[in-house]
Design a protein around this nucleic acid. Structure first.
Ligand SMILES: [Mn+2]
Ligand SMILES: [Mn+2]
Ligand SMILES: [Zn+2]
Ligand SMILES: [Zn+2]
Lengths: 132, 132
DNA sequence: TGGTAGTTTATAATGATTCTAAAAAAGTGT
DNA sequence: ACACTTTTTTAGAATCATTATAAACTACCA
């Protein structure tokens, strides 16, 4: 099974629940932006089985720690995650509360001129808020 | 007093507590990035008086609604606010959990090429995460 | 197959934020 | 100043996303 390696790399054994989470997370063409509760709803619908919220949180956090998921900084009541773990930019539709990926070519190179003593840049991300 | 107008514009009467909040928020040269709890601590220290957390929350939210404060999107357990309400960019020091303003000239103009049907751009902000 | 370490789950705890309602303060008219 | 109304402050409760707990369950390996 193709998700076993991701799980083992994340320090997790491949269990039925975790494989179901993987199917919802990674069996798709496009980037998936989600909150834990959206993910749980999709799991219930897609696999017709109930998984404990704790297992969803634990698995998502293990994947995030390993770099298979990333958190997106948004001021919302819920934390957003992203299956696109590359350094990339977003539209955030304020009305729909939905994230949309931006290609680097949609934004162009960003050159940070200021330097902070003893610190190095880990990531550079643009958030473009959209309204109607 | 110079803060009375800000308060009245925000639909708030100038009370002792609110003026104390204003002094901590706005009586400064540089941008102030803060969480509600940091703000409360500064109020206690600077004015040597105790203000109810509820009053701090209410006042900050009224100022944010009116545009005298803005929220900064950061994935942290606490919400960050900023006294610099212009469209601007940030460093975020992951170790110190501190925000630092970037001038527009430190980043240069950002041109968003992609368009979304029926939506217009409200803001474009860059977040640069820093590590050691 | 049995033993052990890892996992799932329901449930409790936590902590930031929001809500509530009673007491306090401020505004208003006399 | 006084009585009266409206707004504000405040402590504490409620809410809700997230994290912790610990007992039942399962995967893995000898
Ligand atoms: Mn999290
Ligand atoms: Mn808030
Ligand atoms: Zn994305
Ligand atoms: Zn700022």
């Amino acid at each position: 099974m193709k998700y076993i390696e991701k799980l083992r790399n994340s320090g997790l054994r491949p269990t039925k629940q975790r494989l179901q989470i993987c199917e919802v997370l990674f069996d798709r063409d496009k980037t998936f932006h989600f909150t834990i509760n959206e993910l749980e709803r999709k799991i219930k619908k897609q696999t017709d089985s109930k998984i404990s919220l704790a297992t969803v949180y634990n698995t998502v956090h293990a994947f995030e720690k390993k770099g298979y998921l990333k958190q997106i900084p948004i001021n919302s009541s819920e934390t957003y995650f992203d299956t696109n773990v590359t350094d990339h930019h977003h539209f955030y539709d304020l009305k729909e509360e939905k994230l949309i990926d931006l290609e680097n070519s949609d934004v162009g190179p960003i050159n940070i001129l200021k330097k902070i003593n003893g610190k190095k840049i880990k990531s550079v991300e643009v958030l473009v808020k959209l309204e109607d």
